[in-house]
Design a protein around this nucleic acid. Structure first.
Length: 228
DNA sequence: AATAGAGCCAACCGCCACTAA
DNA sequence: GTTAGTGGCGGTTGGCTCTAT
């Protein structure tokens, strides 16, 4: 990418010195007021550019390694639910950026997803069953992400869930006691499903219906990251 | 060894939403 | 209620690297 100058602002790849200056400035001023921060830092970069560099590369706790199979499964599943809501998907994957996920999707997962979607479409015609609490429990033995049932049960301990003091406990009880299989109120999209215990589900990731898939993702993620 | 094509990924662009004046 | 400034998001670009021929 060429190092073009637009007026007084630098563009193109960041230099190591620029990274250091930006990191130091963010350390002092915090992650806000990017335009002012850019000016104060002395960097000839736009606020937008500084923000992007920080968010996608310099921010602490970013994972720079390969996307794991678990992460890939989550990306696939959430993309199926939400489409190209990369920032939303990224919030479910700590340490990953929306840009990283978007790039990974385009280069690795697009074809995979299309193939999976085609499979799902065909199997949907044969399997329309909605999981009830009972068959949810039964399917616990089938594992998540191909893990053994013992590994799975470490993650998904129903008893522990039921003893949890979560504010959503009552909704779980309500759901179970109703035996209708599904909570009456749909989870709104976005943040409000984070950290919830709304769906004590143990469905397989490769579940055949859209609704099952949706439920399993929330549950798996919520169980792994109850305080995220 | 040279070249073309494909894939990857950092960075930019343009739009939209939010907020303060 | 309006407007300007700012930040955030998704889409796109283009340079670099790898691989096949």
């Amino acid at each position: 990418m060429a190092n073009r100058d637009t007026g007084n602002l630098r563009r193109g790849p960041w230099l190591e010195e620029e990274d250091e200056i930006l990191t130091a400035t963010v350390g002092v001023l915090g992650e806000k007021h990017w335009d002012a921060l850019a000016k104060q830092s002395g960097l000839r970069r736009s606020g937008k550019s500084c923000r992007l560099r920080w968010m996608n590369y310099l921010r602490p706790n970013l994972k720079h390694g390969e996307i794991t199979q678990e992460e890939e499964a989550i990306i696939l599943d959430l993309h199926k639910q939400w489409g190209s809501k990369w920032s939303k998907i990224a919030k479910r994957l700590p340490g990953r950026t929306d840009n990283e996920i978007k790039n990974y999707w385009r280069s690795h997962l697009k074809k995979k997803s299309e193939a999976q979607y085609a499979d799902t479409e065909s199997s949907n015609k044969q399997d329309k069953a909605i999981p009830t609490y009972n068959n949810v429990i039964e399917s616990e033995n089938e594992g998540i992400f191909g893990k053994s049932s013992s590994e799975t049960s470490e993650i998904c301990n129903m008893n522990a869930l039921m003893e949890n003091e979560s504010p959503y406990e009552s909704r779980i009880s309500e759901w179970i006691s109703s035996s209708s299989g599904w909570p009456s109120s749909e989870v709104k999209d976005d943040e409000d499903c984070m950290g919830t215990y709304t769906y004590p589900c143990f469905c397989q990731l490769e579940s055949s219906s859209h609704e099952e898939t949706k439920m399993s993702t929330h549950s798996v993620w919520d169980l792994w990251n109850p305080i995220w």
